[in-house]
Design a protein around this nucleic acid. Structure first.
Lengths: 334, 334
DNA sequence: TTGTAAGCGTTATCAA
DNA sequence: TTGATAACGCTTACAA
């Protein structure tokens, strides 16, 4: 069942069928109706491969995430897919993991599918920021299609980034803790990504501005798994701290479990702040104060700008920074 | 940059280039090397639209989920994508929500993209089982491409289902509770789907076999949100029960929060069992006994059978039932 | 082993 | 307002 069949049945040329299918106004109402009837009766659907070949697009957006099982990323994809769908784009989803070679390979694979644009979800794609070669593959990809980063910053032609202001969010949280008299704030992170660095910078800035020392022993690199963090903290018997800032709720829950085992009162003896405001934060007890990084807003703005770029508009913001929200619950006293 | 350019540069015909690209063995080693060099130097990638047009496939699998932000479904997609990727298939992801009309529309949209197969994730696509018309759109889709259901059962030509044995899992859990003397087991669910019905059936069977009454007041339909469940249970002040079985961890956490507020000892006064063994189950306190429905195994078996069907093999199992695992933690005493 | 040429099913240009 | 026809870039008989 192709356009020739429809043309034959409707007694018109394939050009006319194509016009009807594509909603051209250069078709008489009578002809249009006739063709539409035939199309409907025959259950005809245009072959998207042929359309793609002619138009050089299948209206497909590549979405790359390190791990779709991660709550935060799944939520991003949810918002992205929803909005892309309403604008007639499909999502080609790929999961790269965190390994640089796999990231590059997955980007290449997506590009080879002739996607219209590429969205990279998660600050892991922004590299550590120290070595710009780490992100060369993104710039190379951007020479073929516009590239959009969610929660990561990379500079380059045809690259657009949307991030939430993690630095300020952590700065504000740390300042609140310090104002309440906290002097030794533990910083827990599972990453060296751009976003992790921003959070760290906010943490250090708050300490410095408050005249507190920035101590290496209070910056712990760990895995984003509650039990792992709990056990790790249980082992550091000599380490003293009166507050915890974690770069993901999973680690904050680990700190909470540790405090419980040690018989510490949260938030009296220990204040804990998580990140991402995930379902974990309302699942534990006491419920977790957490930084909401505005996933929906970030995704929304990303797609908006993507559509503008694809329409050929000029002067689209290459960097968009969205403020975070602190969601206060029961693991803090401020 | 197309196959003609490469052919010209390599001094061969496009047929030879095509043969090299597709790994045909009917090419002399010398020619192959020459062509590969040119392809590499030029950075040539075949146009997938043209390939798709000729072969009538782009090696794309449509994956439909009601909501990718749901932990369970995100995990499924993670396993599916991973395995499909290793076999050279791409994933076209779409999120339909739970509305029947949207489901049908999304299936149609995916089919119009000429996917090689369709995977439906979640028992919501299996309908309630009462009305087979509810699933007619699946049978219709199956007339175009093989359709695979994850965690839902629908019968029909070219439809393949992989489910875990929810009925038996809940039956076993209920029997364990009853053996320990529990007499009033609350059953919490947020769905009327196939899988929810199976769980309910296992629950009722255990009661009946044990000579306990099946009471309507002990079957509560609610939302899968911890706070919602907690508040709901707080309102049912007259309802008495000594155990809870929830069809998702989120609801079980709600029951746990309720027990905490009421000052009940879990598991002494109230035993609680969740479902899906999600990250929520190890996040709360005490940690939740939960039924693991073997997501990885289910997804793995689904892709295996999908590949077999696409290879044209016959006699593939249309229904595959995988036993669940009970993960015992601290909200039960058995 | 290699090349020629005919599809694949559209869109778009140009005449009519 | 319509129709004939040339792309689009590949795969694959069939010939050589």
């Amino acid at each position: 069942m192709n356009i020739y069949d429809i043309a034959g049945m409707a007694g018109v040329s394939i050009a006319t069928v194509s016009r009807v299918v594509n909603g051209s106004d250069k078709v008489s109402e009578k002809t249009r109706q006739k063709v539409l009837d035939v199309i409907h009766d025959a259950g005809y659907t245009p072959n998207v491969f042929a359309q793609g070949l002619g138009l050089n697009t299948m209206h497909t957006i590549g979405i790359l995430v390190p791990n779709i099982a991660d709550v935060y990323m799944a939520e991003c994809v949810n918002f992205l897919e929803d909005q892309l769908h309403t604008y007639g784009y499909d999502c080609l989803l790929s999961c790269s993991g965190f390994d640089i070679e796999q990231k590059e390979a997955h980007v290449q694979l997506l590009l080879s599918k002739r996607i219209d644009a590429l969205i990279l979800v998660g600050s892991t794609y922004a590299g550590s920021g120290e070595n710009s070669h780490e992100t060369d593959y993104i710039r190379e990809a951007a020479s073929q299609v516009p590239v959009f980063l969610i929660n990561g910053a990379v500079s380059g032609e045809n690259i657009y980034c949307t991030v939430c202001d993690d630095r300020k969010a952590v700065y504000d949280v740390a300042m609140s803790l310090i104002r309440r008299g906290r002097k030794r704030i533990l910083f827990l992170t599972d990453s060296h990504s751009y976003s992790a660095q921003q959070k760290m910078a906010g943490y250090e800035q708050a300490l410095t501005e408050s005249g507190l020392p920035v101590l290496g022993e209070l910056r712990l690199h760990t895995k984003n798994r509650a039990h792992y963090v709990r056990d790790m903290l249980l082992q550091y018997t000599n380490l003293k701290y009166d507050a915890v800032i974690a770069t993901d709720d999973g680690m904050a829950v680990g700190a909470l479990k540790f405090a419980k085992i040690r018989g510490m009162n949260v938030p009296l003896d220990l204040e804990i702040v998580g990140y991402n405001n995930s379902s974990l934060s309302i699942c534990c007890d006491p419920e977790l104060t957490s930084v909401d990084n505005r996933t929906e807003q970030v995704c929304h703005d990303t797609v908006d700008r993507m559509l503008a770029v694809l329409r050929g508009e000029r002067g689209i913001d290459a960097q968009l920074i969205i403020p975070c929200h602190l969601i206060k619950r029961s693991t803090t006293d401020f």
